[in-house]
């Protein structure tokens, strides 16, 4: 169904070639036995100004896994995804993709290393048309026709609105345009931040079905969610983040109850 899934390693090497032309990664940067696409976070501390938000996160997610990060507002879910996606330089600790240390690399470099991150609430360029948005997704390497084909096949509604300004689409349709990037890039690692925010439940299910398919193709997925139930439908593992620390990790079923407690107050 998805071409090229098997040679993720080749994809990774191609990505590296873009970033470091003519140079193989040095031995110490690579954990030799790490499967391509594995995301590893070690001892991550991150801060906004003086305020530390993440106090030492350790995490390992393998290809095909979908890790749901749960936790109340301000727990640090978005911050963790930002640090993994190169949008926030961590104060200390390391982020590894496929065993290679990518700490401190910017979002563009990470995109070429096969990491795709869809930010919260703003995964599209609102003043560009749908087609122009899709054109921007070709920076990942796919051709314009490939990007449009994959997007319109999966989300036929976008084909009808191809010349409409993305800012005038419904929230769900905007999220579809954002998702088209993940479909086009076929990333090794996919980071999703609160994709359900402000969307109707039906649309959320549709989007999560896409997430499931992408993961089934061998992509490592980490998603942050408040919308616990939908997230747990596709998650293979769940972790609860609270006040900048990973409190518990377990199966989605185990975590559902714990998450409820952390949202609605422990006394209830």
């Amino acid at each position: 169904m998805r071409r090229g899934r098997s040679d993720r390693g080749a994809l990774y090497e191609r990505g590296l070639a873009v970033v470091m032309p003519g140079r193989r990664p040095a031995a110490e940067e690579v954990t030799p036995d790490a499967p391509p696409g594995r995301l590893t976070v070690r001892g991550l501390h991150a801060a906004y100004g003086r305020i530390e938000v993440l106090h030492g996160i350790d995490l390992e997610v393998s290809p095909g896994e979908v890790l749901a990060l749960l936790g109340p507002n301000g727990a640090g879910k978005s911050t963790l995804l930002k640090a993994c996606g190169g949008r926030l330089r961590p104060r200390s600790g390391r982020v590894l993709v496929s065993g290679a240390d990518v700490t401190g690399k910017g979002p563009a470099a990470l995109a070429h290393l096969g990491l795709c991150s869809i930010p919260e609430g703003r995964g599209v360029f609102p003043n560009l048309s749908v087609r122009e948005n899709l054109l921007m997704w070709t920076y990942g390497g796919a051709s314009r026709s490939e990007v449009e084909e994959r997007a319109f096949e999966r989300f036929p509604r976008l084909a009808e609105r191809r010349n409409q300004r993305a800012g005038t689409l419904s929230g769900g349709e905007q999220q579809m345009v954002a998702f088209a990037r993940a479909l086009a890039a076929r990333p090794a690692v996919l980071l999703l931040d609160e994709i359900s925010m402000g969307l109707a439940p039906l649309v959320v299910s549709e989007l999560y079905a896409v997430v499931g398919d992408i993961a089934a193709g061998g992509t490592t997925v980490v998603l942050a969610e408040q919308f616990v139930d939908s997230a747990l439908e596709v998650a293979t593992r769940a972790a609860i983040l609270s006040q900048g620390r990973l409190e518990q990790t377990g199966t989605p079923q185990e975590m559902a109850g714990a998450a409820a407690a952390s949202y609605l107050g422990k006394s209830g």
Binding site: V204, V228, D229, S230, A260, Y263
Partner: peptide, 18 residues
């Protein structure tokens, strides 16, 4: 409010309950 099913759904995302 805390015991309202709609609130449970909003925070926990049960699509049926909402």
């Amino acid at each position: 409010v805390r015991s309202s099913p709609a609130v449970q759904a909003a925070y926990l995302g049960s699509s049926e309950a909402s």
